Amino acid sequence: MDLSDFIKDVYHDLPMLPKESPPWKIISNLEIMLEDLFPTLESKNYMVSDCVAVHETALVENGVTLKPNTIIGPRCTIKSGSYFRNGVYLVSDVVIGANCEIKQSIILKNSSAAHLNYIGNSLIGEDVNLEAGSILANHFNERVDKNIRVLLEGMIVETNMVKFGSLIGDHSRIGANSVLNPGTILHPRSIVPRLKHIDQIK
């Protein structure tokens, strides 16, 4: 699987990613990858403390919680009440609205999430917009079989994961109060209408 088919500059912006590795494996190893990045950041205008790195040009409002293994890149903005955990990387120029929760995810440049979003175990491309209240679910709480499968080129692929959210291609638009099932794969310039439930494997 070539991630650059979904996110054009992914290997340029994230050179530490193993090529040909599927997104669910990348996300499952994200905390380890971020730990390896911290020693390289202090010389690049990041303030690093307790496994949290914030670029000097980023704005983090009062009331934001950043758990260990979080990297906030240049010119990012995070509004009050947001909560980051289990490894989060905002590459650059990302805007996160008030009271969002982001877990174990990468968000690439010029993307934004409005207030009250949940983004779980996901890889989000460049210039993606998530309207208020959209949910990127990462776990099948309601199923006995919790293994996540994805639909790729018309084929169902086993991820062998019980936690994986979405891969969202560049320039996509996710409508307010929509829900993306675990394992959702969206190509570049996808549009999800407001209030839509995306379930690619029935």
Rank of each mutant, 00 (worst) to 15 (best):
E101M: 06
G169R: 08
T40R: 05
Q200G: 11
P68F: 03
I26R: 02
Y118K: 11
T57S: 15
V179Q: 03
M47P: 00
D50N: 13
G87L: 09
E153W: 10
E126Y: 11
E101Y: 01
G165T: 04
K163N: 04
N121I: 06
I72A: 09
I102S: 11
S166C: 06
V144M: 04
F6S: 00
Y11D: 07
I27F: 12
N99Q: 07
L195A: 05
I78M: 06
G120M: 11
P74Y: 05
P182T: 05
L116W: 03
A114E: 04
E20A: 15
D50T: 09
L59C: 06
V91C: 08
M16H: 13
Y83L: 08
L180R: 01
L90F: 08
M47C: 07
G63K: 01
I32A: 07
L37G: 00
E131M: 12
N121A: 10
R75Y: 13
K196Q: 10
I26F: 04
I96L: 06
S190V: 10
E61L: 07
H197M: 03
S80Q: 09
G81Q: 04
H12D: 14
S21V: 11
K146V: 00
I168G: 01
P15Q: 06
C51K: 09
D9H: 15
V128D: 01
L90T: 12
G87M: 09
V128L: 02
D93P: 10
S49D: 10
A137H: 01
E56S: 08
M161W: 03
Q200F: 08
V54T: 11
S111R: 11
V162K: 09
L130H: 02
L17E: 14
V91R: 12
P15V: 00
V10K: 15
P18Q: 07
D9K: 13
K163V: 01
S134E: 00
K103M: 13
R85I: 14
N86K: 15
I27S: 09
R85A: 12
Y46N: 13
L90M: 09
N117Q: 01
R149D: 05
P74K: 11
A58C: 08
G154K: 04
N86A: 15
M161V: 03
E142V: 10
G133M: 08
G175A: 13
E158A: 15
H171T: 12
V95L: 03
N138A: 09
D145Y: 02
